[in-house]
């Protein structure tokens, strides 16, 4: 099964994770919300699939380009 990494566009902290492993999601769905520059920045899925793994926890800092979730297509 093909899988893709979902990356964060920004450096910030994980504020709220909106999905759990095993969830079926569509392209464009919000996986989690980060906080950066005092803004809520959604991490949206680049593809449709199921959430294979969440790679971060709430309040954890993330870097730009860091993988935050794995998706099975």
């Amino acid at each position: 099964m093909a899988s893709v990494e979902i990356q964060s566009d920004v450096t910030g902290t994980v504020w709220k994770i909106e999905v759990k492993e095993g969830d079926t999601i569509a392209e464009g769905d919000t996986l989690m919300i980060l906080e950066s520059m005092k803004m809520e920045i959604p991490v949206v899925s680049t593809d449709a699939g199921t959430v294979a793994k969440i790679l971060v926890t709430e309040e954890e800092p993330v870097a730009e380009g860091q993988a935050v979730a794995l998706l099975n297509l």
């Binding site: 566009d9 920004v10 950066s36 520059m37 005092k38 803004m39 920045i41």
Partner: peptide, 8 residues
């Protein structure tokens, strides 16, 4: 673009 670093 507010989606990236709030547009900073």
């Amino acid at each position: 673009n507010p989606m990236v670093y709030g547009g900073a």
